[in-house]
Design a protein around this nucleic acid. Structure first.
Length: 424
RNA sequence: AGAAAGGUGGCCGAGUGGUCGAAGGCGCACGCUUGGAAAGCGUGUAUACGGCAACGUAUCGAGGGUUCGAAUCCCUUCCUUUCUACCA
C-alpha cells in the first residue's frame, strides 16, 4: 500500500508509474484519494479541537470537585454535553472518511521502478539474460506427463481420486527426486547465508492482508471459513509476516530467510494445454527466499538474489532466461520483478520457475515494518522475495531435458541428494 | 475443551477513577570522568496524525460501554501462562 503522504507529494510520479502498468482510472482514483485525504485532515483538526476543549473542561471539573466547589463543577458539566455530541459526530465522520481512504488505497498498485518498461501483458516483458544449452532430444522426446507415466513416478489420476485435479501423487524415485530438490535448494540457500525457517501453512486474514493477498486475491486462496484461516499461496506470506509490526535496528539488516512450504492455489478458471501435468497445480512445493533490507540497499540485494538463483540453475545445467517484467505484468505489490523461465524442450515452451521482486515499502507499509534510521526516526523497511525454486516445473524441466533412450539422467548436483543417477 | 491468572513503552516492571504518555530498572544515545576502556555520575530516550513551530489529539492486546473524566470500572473478543481433560 502506498503511503498517502507519498501520493500527496509525488502525484506526477505516481500517475506516471500507474500509466506504465496500464492501470485504469488512475487519474480519478488519485484525485479521489487526495480529496479524501484533505477531508480527513480537516475533520481531524475539528475533532482534535473539540476534544481539546472537552479535556480542558474535564480538568477544571476535577479541580472544582477537589476544592469542594460542587456547583461550579455542575455548571461546567452541562457544557460538556454538547461537546460530547459534537465529538461523537466528528469522530464518526472521521472514521468513515478513513475507511473510504483505506478502500481507495487498497486498490492502488505499487509504483514500478524506473527500469520497468510500460506494457500491457507478458508479451511486453524484456528478455534480459539467457544461459544454458537447449538439448537436442531427437524425434522421440516426450512431455513430462508422459515420462511420469512411463516411469511411474507421478500419478495424476490417483491425486484426482484423493483430492481432485491439480493434486498429483509423487511415487518412488519421483517422490525422492522432489525431496532431493527441496534439500538441495535449502542447502544452497543456507550456504548463501539465508536462515532456514519452518512456518505455518495457514495464516490469518491480517497476515494475508499485510503481504497483499487480501483483499484483491481473495478468490485465489483456499479459505477455511470455520477458523477464518487461509492456506498459504506462497511462503512469502508467513515468512514476511514474521516481522509484522516490528521496529528493527539498522544493524539488523540484512534480514535473510529461506523456507520450504507447500503452496496452495485455487487457480479458478485455469484450463487447457498450458495447465497439463505439472504446469499448473493446486498444491505444489516451493523453497522461498525473503529479505528485509535498508531502502538504500534493496536493489543491490535484488540483484544478489538474481545472481543466487542463476547460480542454482547453472549448477543444474538447465536452459533458462530472465525477464524483466513490464508494468502491466508486474504484480500488484511489486516495484520490480525478474521472472526466471526454464526452457522445456519437449513442450517447446518457457516455464516460469522463479520470480524475484522488490516490494520497496509497499508491503512494509501494511506490515508496519520499520527500522530506526541514523537520525533516530523510524522509517519503513524494504521487503523482497524470490523463489529458489518452485518445484514442479523444475521437476518437469529435468524430466524433459534430461530424458535419454536409457532413462532420465539426474543432474550431477542432485545425485548425492537422490542416491541414484538415473530414473528408468 | 473446562478452570484460574494475566496482556502496560525497544525489553523488564509499577500503577484500581483526575495532577498518568505513564514510577523504577535494563538497554540505547550524548556529555563528564579516564592515557584508553570499564565502572561511576549527569542529561536525554514510545508511536501515529495535524501544525513552520509552540503545541494539540489519539494510543496501556482489540472493539464497545459507564463517567464531566478510564491503563484503572463493566461487556464482548483475541492472545499468553498454569492446572485439568485429550492427543501426534
Amino acid at each position: 500500500m502506498l503511503q498517502v503522504h507519498f501520493i500527496r507529494e509525488n502525484k506526477e510520479t505516481v500517475l506516471a508509474g500507474l500509466a506504465k502498468r496500464n492501470f485504469a482510472n488512475a487519474e480519478s482514483i488519485i484525485e479521489h484519494v487526495l480529496s479524501a485525504d484533505e477531508n480527513r485532515r480537516k475533520t481531524q483538526v475539528q475533532l482534535d479541537n473539540t476534544l481539546a476543549e472537552s479535556n480542558k473542561i474535564s480538568k477544571e471539573i476535577g479541580n472544582f470537585f477537589k476544592s469542594g466547589e460542587i456547583q461550579k463543577a455542575n455548571i461546567l458539566k452541562e457544557r460538556t454535553v454538547q461537546l460530547k455530541e459534537k465529538s461523537k459526530e466528528l469522530s464518526e465522520k472521521s472514521n468513515a472518511i478513513a475507511d473510504e481512504l483505506q478502500t481507495l488505497l487498497y486498490q492502488i498498485p505499487n509504483v514500478p521502478h524506473e527500469s520497468v518498461k510500460a506494457g500491457k501483458s507478458e508479451e511486453d516483458n524484456e528478455n534480459i539474460f539467457s544461459e544454458g544449452n537447449i538439448p537436442d532430444l531427437g524425434e522421440n522426446s516426450l512431455p513430462h506427463w508422459e515420462l511420469a507415466k512411463k516411469y511411474d513416478i507421478i500419478d495424476f489420476e490417483l491425486g484426482t481420486k484423493i483430492a481432485g485435479a491439480g493434486f498429483p501423487v509423487y511415487k518412488g524415485k519421483g517422490a525422492r527426486l522432489q525431496r532431493a530438490l527441496i534439500n538441495y535448494f535449502l542447502d544452497k540457500n543456507t550456504k548463501a547465508g539465508y536462515t532456514e525457517v519452518q512456518v505455518p501453512h495457514l495464516v490469518n486474514a491480517e497476515s494475508a492482508t499485510a503481504t497483499g493477498q487480501l483483499p484483491d486475491k481473495e478468490g485465489q486462496m483456499y479459505h477455511s471459513t470455520v477458523d477464518d484461516l487461509y492456506l498459504i499461496p506462497t511462503a512469502e506470506v508467513p515468512i514476511t509476516n514474521m516481522f509484522r509490526g516490528n521496529l528493527v535496528l539498522e544493524s539488523n539488516f540484512p534480514i535473510t530467510l529461506t523456507g520450504y512450504t507447500p503452496c496452495f492455489r485455487r487457480e479458478a478458471g485455469s484450463y487447457g494445454a498450458h495447465v497439463r501435468g505439472l504446469n499448473r497445480l493446486h498444491q505444489f512445493d516451493k523453497v522461498e527466499i525473503v529479505r528485509i533490507e535498508h531502502p538504500n540497499n534493496s536493489y543491490q540485494a535484488l540483484n544478489g538474489m538474481v545472481e543466487h538463483i542463476k547460480d542454482i540453475l547453472r549448477e543444474l545445467k538447465l536452459p533458462y532466461r530472465i525477464l524483466r517484467l513490464c508494468g502491466g505484468d508486474t504484480g500488484f505489490t511489486a516495484a520490480l520483478t525478474f521472472d526466471f523461465e526454464l526452457f522445456s524442450t519437449a513442450q517447446d515452451r518457457w516455464l516460469e520457475i522463479s520470480s524475484a521482486s522488490n516490494f520497496e515499502t509497499f508491503q512494509a507499509n501494511r506490515l508496519k515494518l520499520r527500522f530506526k534510521n541514523k537520525d533516530g526516526k523510524s522509517e519503513l523497511a524494504h521487503t523482497l522475495n524470490g523463489s529458489s525454486l518452485a518445484l514442479p516445473r523444475v521437476l518437469a524441466g529435468i524430466l524433459e531435458n534430461y530424458q535419454t533412450a536409457e532413462g532420465i539422467k539426474i543432474p550431477d548436483a542432485l545425485v548425492p541428494y537422490c542416491g541414484f543417477d538415473i530414473i528408468n
